[in-house]
Design a protein around this nucleic acid. Structure first.
Lengths: 243, 243
DNA sequence: CTATGACCAAATAGTCTTAATCAGTCATTT
DNA sequence: AAATGACTGATTAAGACTATTTGGTCATAG
């Protein structure tokens, strides 16, 4: 006999409906967590918001933490996709400055990840806590390091500066432009796009040589960054920890 | 008659002893607050540590908050002095980059103010809380603005960038290099001096024109920054609020 | 076979009472 | 007059107990 009782397409459809429902649940969780914070968001709330019974949620994830882990993972993968999209739409700006600018802009549109990055404890609670120097974060940074090393080999960033320093500079600029916004009095803040552009310019002037870069080298840089993204994506897929 | 019962020199000596004792008390408070945090530091602790009776503390300050206000004020004035000293010792590096570098280095040596800046709540508790957008902070920023405006007038910083953006860039760089250190995994951090130098270089390459600057213009810049410092100092003297 | 929601144990929040601590005062000592 | 530390009232912590909530399960319905 071919199939027991259901056709392959049925099984497939069931699986896709399942995925869609999982997505709805995660959507509900994301919305609630942003509105009420991590610790105040209960499984019952999520079930009600998603229009499923509580038990259904446990058909998808074993524990509450698994659910939030999946949510963060989805956010990270989505972020990586957004960045890839932006880079694809702007191949000219794919050197280091472009990578940072597009990452920043994409990140600003993801309030959950923004909260994680800014360690906005009201929102994420202890979800991403106690993992500050987690293996994943380290791996992410070392992945970034190989990207930077590649850029150095291509002379797409200055080489008269140690790799270590360069890493610190990139991190500091990225975090600074991000963190400054909420800490500065309102009347001094700028729009997301202005911030991203200024960040890009800062990185450019500080770390990139001012020679004109041929298009094919930009392609290389672009590919290297995509490799980094893919690497980061892979580690995100297999781990629960924070950014 | 001349004096009632004590000579002027005696009165003077008493006053200086008084000042010295006030200093000892503030020293004790600073040490305890750094070790145990603001909320866990009691007046009794401070008195014991300073070797005075509790009542004596109230001969100097009306309330606990007054004491901590005085402590913060003293720290701020000391910081300003340190910065002035550094600038005086390095007149060549007194353009914007030097101002930031010296401010950063001076600040790093003042753990209490560093905690306030980094909003290290474990240390400062609610001491500097609820004043985020305080009038003092605003005034400080506007004071900095006039400094920046002066630098623009002298062509000591780029003018092809709005003042507003420039302010944001300076803030972001300053905060970024500061905040990155504790958030980055240990094996990626740098020494204070390295950080300050990188910060200075970043500010230089991002905001300063690369023309060679004559010594007399540097003098001007130096004076302008000292004016800003004096302004900030004055507002610190008259107010209790945070940095 | 899937989805549900009543159900349970465990954790959390709330309530009340008691004990301890602390900021600030002031009578006493030096 | 200056300095002290025992004292006080008010705030906070601790504890004991109860009520509520919540993560997770599972027998049942569809």
């Amino acid at each position: 006999m071919a199939d027991q009782s259901q056709g392959a397409s049925t099984r497939q459809r069931d699986e896709s409906r399942r995925q869609e429902r999982a997505g709805r649940i995660l959507d509900a969780a994301a919305g609630l967590i942003l509105r009420w914070g991590y610790s105040k968001t209960t499984i019952d709330d999520i079930a009600r918001q998603a229009g499923v019974a509580k038990g259904t949620i446990y058909l998808h994830w074993k524990t509450r933490e698994d659910l939030f882990g999946a949510l963060l993972r989805r956010e990270k993968l989505g972020l990586a996709d957004d960045i890839r999209q932006r880079i694809a739409d702007d191949p000219a700006g794919s050197a280091l400055r472009g990578a940072l600018k597009h990452s920043a802009l994409a990140l600003m549109k993801r309030p959950l990840l923004k909260a994680v990055l800014l360690r906005d404890l009201d929102v994420i609670g202890k979800l991403a806590h106690g993992e500050r120097n987690s293996a994943a974060q380290l791996e992410r940074l070392t992945g970034f390091k190989t990207y930077l090393e590649f850029l150095r080999d291509c002379n797409l960033v200055r080489t008269d500066l140690s790799l270590r320093s360069q890493e610190y500079v990139v991190s500091a600029i990225f975090m600074g432009f991000f963190l400054a916004a909420p800490l500065i009095p309102e009347e001094f803040t700028l729009s997301d796009d202005e911030i991203a552009d200024l960040m890009a310019e800062t990185v450019h002037r500080t770390l990139e040589p001012d020679r004109a870069v041929p298009a094919d080298e930009l392609q290389n840089a672009s590919h290297a960054f995509l490799r980094y993204l893919n690497h980061a994506t892979k580690t995100a897929e297999s781990s629960f920890s924070e950014m």
